[in-house]
Protein backbone atom coordinates (compact mmCIF):
# COMPACT_ATOMS: atom_id res chain seq x y z
CA UNK A 1 0.00 0.00 0.00
CA UNK A 2 2.99 2.29 0.55
CA UNK A 3 5.64 2.49 -2.13
CA UNK A 4 8.52 4.72 -3.02
CA UNK A 5 9.75 5.46 -6.52
CA UNK A 6 13.21 6.88 -7.15
CA UNK A 7 13.12 8.47 -3.71
CA UNK A 8 15.97 10.80 -2.79
CA UNK A 9 16.07 12.61 0.52
CA UNK A 10 18.78 14.67 2.13
CA UNK A 11 19.61 17.34 4.65
CA UNK A 12 21.66 20.32 3.47
CA UNK A 13 24.52 18.86 1.41
CA UNK A 14 24.16 15.34 2.75
CA UNK A 15 22.18 12.82 0.72
CA UNK A 16 20.58 10.16 2.92
CA UNK A 17 18.44 8.25 0.48
CA UNK A 18 19.33 8.11 -3.20
CA UNK A 19 16.90 6.73 -5.76
CA UNK A 20 15.12 4.30 -3.47
CA UNK A 21 12.43 2.00 -4.88
CA UNK A 22 10.47 0.06 -2.30
CA UNK A 23 7.06 -1.57 -1.99
CA UNK A 24 5.59 -2.28 1.42
CA UNK A 25 2.87 -4.93 1.51
CA UNK A 26 -0.59 -4.10 2.82
CA UNK A 27 -2.00 -5.95 5.83
CA UNK A 28 1.47 -6.84 7.03
CA UNK A 29 3.75 -5.87 9.88
CA UNK A 30 6.80 -4.44 8.16
CA UNK A 31 9.92 -3.76 10.18
CA UNK A 32 12.77 -1.65 8.87
CA UNK A 33 16.19 -2.44 10.34
CA UNK A 34 19.70 -1.23 9.74
CA UNK A 35 22.67 0.33 11.48
CA UNK A 36 22.57 3.85 12.90
CA UNK A 37 22.38 6.60 10.29
CA UNK A 38 21.47 4.16 7.51
CA UNK A 39 18.44 6.26 6.63
CA UNK A 40 15.73 4.02 8.08
CA UNK A 41 14.13 6.81 10.11
CA UNK A 42 14.50 9.18 7.18
CA UNK A 43 12.70 6.65 4.99
CA UNK A 44 9.87 6.24 7.49
CA UNK A 45 9.53 9.99 8.01
CA UNK A 46 9.47 10.61 4.26
CA UNK A 47 6.82 7.95 3.74
CA UNK A 48 4.82 9.62 6.51
CA UNK A 49 5.20 12.96 4.60
CA UNK A 50 7.06 14.49 7.59
CA UNK A 51 9.99 15.09 5.26
CA UNK A 52 9.81 16.35 1.70
CA UNK A 53 11.88 14.32 -0.75
CA UNK A 54 14.31 16.08 -3.07
CA UNK A 55 13.32 13.80 -5.88
CA UNK A 56 10.98 10.91 -6.40
CA UNK A 57 7.61 10.03 -4.96
CA UNK A 58 5.94 8.29 -2.09
CA UNK A 59 2.83 6.47 -3.27
CA UNK A 60 -0.11 5.72 -1.03
CA UNK A 61 -2.23 3.08 -2.80
CA UNK A 62 -0.82 4.29 -6.09
CA UNK A 63 -1.40 8.04 -5.56
CA UNK A 64 1.49 10.40 -4.92
CA UNK A 65 1.18 11.37 -1.27
CA UNK A 66 2.13 14.99 -1.95
CA UNK A 67 -0.91 15.33 -4.22
CA UNK A 68 -3.26 14.30 -1.41
CA UNK A 69 -4.51 16.86 1.13
CA UNK A 70 -2.55 16.30 4.34
CA UNK A 71 -5.79 15.98 6.34
CA UNK A 72 -6.99 13.23 4.02
CA UNK A 73 -3.65 11.45 4.47
CA UNK A 74 -4.08 11.78 8.24
CA UNK A 75 -7.26 9.71 7.99
CA UNK A 76 -5.41 6.89 6.23
CA UNK A 77 -1.95 7.03 7.75
CA UNK A 78 -1.16 7.35 11.46
CA UNK A 79 2.31 8.42 12.46
CA UNK A 80 4.11 8.06 15.75
CA UNK A 81 7.39 9.99 15.53
CA UNK A 82 10.43 9.18 17.61
CA UNK A 83 10.20 11.78 20.34
CA UNK A 84 6.80 13.41 20.60
CA UNK A 85 6.51 16.18 23.18
CA UNK A 86 4.37 15.71 26.24
CA UNK A 87 2.87 19.00 27.36
CA UNK A 88 2.41 19.20 31.11
CA UNK A 89 -1.06 18.69 32.45
CA UNK A 90 -2.59 17.05 29.37
CA UNK A 91 -4.65 14.05 30.45
CA UNK A 92 -4.55 10.71 28.69
CA UNK A 93 -8.14 11.04 27.47
CA UNK A 94 -7.36 14.53 26.15
CA UNK A 95 -4.23 13.40 24.33
CA UNK A 96 -5.90 10.37 22.76
CA UNK A 97 -8.77 12.66 21.78
CA UNK A 98 -6.38 14.81 19.78
CA UNK A 99 -5.98 11.84 17.47
CA UNK A 100 -9.45 12.72 16.20
CA UNK A 101 -8.36 16.08 14.82
CA UNK A 102 -8.24 14.90 11.19
CA UNK A 103 -12.00 14.30 11.45
CA UNK A 104 -12.92 17.58 13.10
CA UNK A 105 -13.77 20.96 11.71
CA UNK A 106 -14.93 24.18 13.25
CA UNK A 107 -18.49 23.28 12.44
CA UNK A 108 -18.04 19.64 13.36
CA UNK A 109 -16.57 19.35 16.82
CA UNK A 110 -16.60 16.37 19.17
CA UNK A 111 -19.02 13.72 17.88
CA UNK A 112 -20.28 10.30 19.03
CA UNK A 113 -18.05 8.62 16.45
CA UNK A 114 -15.05 10.41 18.00
CA UNK A 115 -16.17 9.10 21.37
CA UNK A 116 -16.37 5.54 20.04
CA UNK A 117 -13.01 5.71 18.27
CA UNK A 118 -11.27 7.09 21.37
CA UNK A 119 -12.83 4.49 23.66
CA UNK A 120 -11.83 1.69 21.30
CA UNK A 121 -8.28 3.01 20.88
CA UNK A 122 -7.85 3.28 24.63
CA UNK A 123 -9.16 -0.22 25.13
CA UNK A 124 -6.87 -1.66 22.45
CA UNK A 125 -3.82 0.01 23.93
CA UNK A 126 -5.05 -0.89 27.42
CA UNK A 127 -4.94 2.63 28.82
CA UNK A 128 -8.58 3.09 29.94
CA UNK A 129 -7.63 3.09 33.61
CA UNK A 130 -5.23 5.93 32.95
CA UNK A 131 -7.86 8.12 31.25
CA UNK A 132 -7.82 10.98 33.74
CA UNK A 133 -4.10 10.87 34.57
CA UNK A 134 -1.80 13.61 33.25
CA UNK A 135 0.44 12.06 30.60
CA UNK A 136 3.60 13.57 32.10
CA UNK A 137 3.12 11.55 35.30
CA UNK A 138 3.12 8.18 33.51
CA UNK A 139 5.98 5.71 33.15
CA UNK A 140 7.75 5.32 29.81
CA UNK A 141 5.86 2.16 28.91
CA UNK A 142 2.46 3.60 29.78
CA UNK A 143 3.29 6.77 27.93
CA UNK A 144 4.20 4.87 24.78
CA UNK A 145 0.91 2.97 24.94
CA UNK A 146 -0.90 6.30 25.26
CA UNK A 147 0.83 7.64 22.16
CA UNK A 148 -0.06 4.51 20.27
CA UNK A 149 -3.64 4.94 21.47
CA UNK A 150 -3.60 8.47 20.04
CA UNK A 151 -2.51 7.22 16.63
CA UNK A 152 -5.10 4.42 16.88
CA UNK A 153 -7.81 7.00 17.54
CA UNK A 154 -6.93 8.38 14.12
CA UNK A 155 -8.55 5.19 12.84
CA UNK A 156 -6.21 4.72 9.90
CA UNK A 157 -5.53 1.69 7.71
CA UNK A 158 -1.81 2.06 8.26
CA UNK A 159 0.41 3.01 11.17
CA UNK A 160 4.01 4.19 10.87
CA UNK A 161 6.11 4.09 14.02
CA UNK A 162 9.64 5.36 14.40
CA UNK A 163 11.51 3.28 16.98
CA UNK A 164 8.48 2.76 19.23
CA UNK A 165 10.43 0.61 21.70
CA UNK A 166 13.46 2.83 22.29
CA UNK A 167 13.95 3.82 25.94
CA UNK A 168 11.63 1.06 27.16
CA UNK A 169 12.70 -1.86 29.29
CA UNK A 170 12.38 -5.35 27.84
CA UNK A 171 8.95 -6.14 29.28
CA UNK A 172 7.53 -2.88 27.94
CA UNK A 173 9.19 -3.45 24.58
CA UNK A 174 7.46 -6.79 24.29
CA UNK A 175 4.20 -5.22 25.43
CA UNK A 176 4.34 -2.60 22.69
CA UNK A 177 5.35 -5.10 20.02
CA UNK A 178 2.57 -7.49 21.07
CA UNK A 179 0.13 -4.62 20.74
CA UNK A 180 1.37 -3.87 17.21
CA UNK A 181 1.13 -7.55 16.38
CA UNK A 182 -2.48 -7.65 17.58
CA UNK A 183 -3.30 -4.60 15.46
CA UNK A 184 -2.07 -6.47 12.45
CA UNK A 185 -3.65 -9.84 13.14
CA UNK A 186 -6.90 -8.84 14.87
CA UNK A 187 -7.63 -5.50 13.25
CA UNK A 188 -6.05 -5.99 9.87
CA UNK A 189 -4.01 -2.81 10.11
CA UNK A 190 -0.87 -2.30 8.10
CA UNK A 191 1.96 -1.62 10.53
CA UNK A 192 5.38 -0.24 9.59
CA UNK A 193 7.98 0.25 12.30
CA UNK A 194 11.65 1.09 12.56
CA UNK A 195 13.23 -1.16 15.19
CA UNK A 196 16.74 -1.48 16.55
CA UNK A 197 16.57 -5.03 17.81
CA UNK A 198 17.12 -7.48 15.00
CA UNK A 199 15.73 -10.42 16.94
CA UNK A 200 12.54 -8.59 17.84
CA UNK A 201 12.26 -7.58 14.19
CA UNK A 202 12.64 -11.19 13.08
CA UNK A 203 10.12 -12.34 15.66
CA UNK A 204 7.33 -9.89 14.88
CA UNK A 205 7.80 -8.88 11.26
CA UNK A 206 5.90 -10.40 8.36
CA UNK A 207 8.10 -8.36 6.08
CA UNK A 208 11.63 -7.28 6.92
CA UNK A 209 13.47 -4.44 5.19
CA UNK A 210 17.21 -4.34 5.81
CA UNK A 211 18.91 -1.06 4.97
CA UNK A 212 22.47 0.07 4.78
CA UNK A 213 23.88 3.46 3.73
CA UNK A 214 20.59 4.70 2.34
CA UNK A 215 19.87 1.63 0.23
CA UNK A 216 17.70 -1.44 0.74
CA UNK A 217 19.95 -4.49 0.94
CA UNK A 218 17.18 -7.07 1.25
CA UNK A 219 13.44 -7.16 1.77
CA UNK A 220 11.16 -10.10 2.44
CA UNK A 221 9.96 -12.48 5.13
CA UNK A 222 12.58 -12.71 7.92
CA UNK A 223 12.84 -16.48 7.62
CA UNK A 224 13.87 -16.11 4.01
CA UNK A 225 16.20 -13.17 4.09
CA UNK A 226 17.75 -13.05 7.56
CA UNK A 227 21.03 -14.91 7.10
CA UNK A 228 24.57 -14.74 8.41
CA UNK A 229 25.62 -13.08 5.18
CA UNK A 230 22.91 -10.42 5.41
CA UNK A 231 23.84 -9.50 8.98
CA UNK A 232 27.49 -9.20 7.98
CA UNK A 233 26.64 -7.11 4.95
CA UNK A 234 24.22 -4.80 6.77
CA UNK A 235 25.77 -4.48 10.21
CA UNK A 236 29.34 -5.63 9.56
CA UNK A 237 28.82 -8.15 12.31
CA UNK A 238 29.70 -11.82 12.46
CA UNK A 239 27.02 -13.99 13.93
CA UNK A 240 25.28 -17.30 13.89
CA UNK A 241 21.62 -17.53 13.02
CA UNK A 242 19.64 -20.18 14.85
CA UNK A 243 15.92 -20.83 15.06
CA UNK A 244 14.30 -19.10 18.02
CA UNK A 245 13.34 -21.73 20.61
CA UNK A 246 9.95 -20.04 21.12
CA UNK A 247 8.79 -19.00 17.67
CA UNK A 248 11.19 -20.65 15.27
CA UNK A 249 11.97 -17.27 13.73
CA UNK A 250 15.62 -16.62 12.93
CA UNK A 251 17.59 -15.63 16.01
CA UNK A 252 20.78 -13.68 15.49
CA UNK A 253 23.55 -14.41 17.97
CA UNK A 254 26.71 -12.33 17.50
CA UNK A 255 29.96 -14.21 17.73
CA UNK A 256 32.70 -13.19 20.15
CA UNK A 257 34.73 -10.23 19.01
CA UNK A 258 37.92 -11.39 20.78
CA UNK A 259 38.51 -13.83 17.96
CA UNK A 260 37.84 -11.11 15.47
CA UNK A 261 39.60 -12.71 12.53
CA UNK A 262 37.23 -15.57 12.06
CA UNK A 263 37.65 -17.75 9.08
CA UNK A 264 34.47 -18.71 7.37
CA UNK A 265 31.15 -17.68 8.75
CA UNK A 266 30.78 -19.36 12.11
CA UNK A 267 32.96 -19.42 15.16
CA UNK A 268 30.42 -21.36 17.14
CA UNK A 269 32.85 -24.24 17.20
CA UNK A 270 35.38 -22.10 19.03
CA UNK A 271 33.35 -21.60 22.17
CA UNK A 272 31.19 -24.69 22.06
CA UNK A 273 33.61 -27.41 21.00
CA UNK A 274 31.16 -30.13 21.90
CA UNK A 275 28.84 -29.19 19.05
CA UNK A 276 30.76 -28.42 15.90
CA UNK A 277 27.64 -27.48 14.01
CA UNK A 278 25.23 -24.77 15.19
CA UNK A 279 22.98 -26.23 17.85
CA UNK A 280 19.66 -27.38 16.60
CA UNK A 281 16.81 -26.24 18.73
CA UNK A 282 13.46 -27.96 18.59
CA UNK A 283 11.02 -25.53 17.07
Amino acid sequence: MLSTRDLSVGYDDRTVLDGLDLDLPADAFTVIVGPNACGKSTLLRTMARLLTPRRGTVLLDGTAIRDLPTRAVARRLGVLPQSPLVPEGVTVADLVGRGRQPYQRWWRQWSPSDEVAVAEAMELADVQELAERPVDTLSGGQRQRVWIAMTLAQDTEALLLDEPTTFLDLAHQVEVLDLLHRLRTERGRTVVAVLHDLNQAARYADHLVAMRAGAVVAAGPPRQILTVDLVREVFGLDCVVVPCPVTGAPLVVPTLRTSSVTKGSSCAAEFSPSSPSPPSVPA
Binding site: T70, A74, Q82, L95, P102, Q154
Partner: peptide
Protein backbone atom coordinates in the same frame (compact mmCIF):
# COMPACT_ATOMS: atom_id res chain seq x y z
CA UNK B 1 2.17 21.27 21.51
CA UNK B 2 2.84 17.58 20.81
CA UNK B 3 5.72 18.38 18.46
CA UNK B 4 5.93 19.35 14.80
CA UNK B 5 5.97 15.75 13.60
CA UNK B 6 2.85 14.77 15.52
CA UNK B 7 1.09 17.90 14.27
CA UNK B 8 1.98 17.01 10.67
CA UNK B 9 0.88 13.44 11.27
CA UNK B 10 -2.49 14.74 12.44
CA UNK B 11 -2.87 16.54 9.13
CA UNK B 12 -1.89 20.09 10.06
CA UNK B 13 0.16 22.42 7.92
Amino acid sequence: ALGDDVARGLGHH
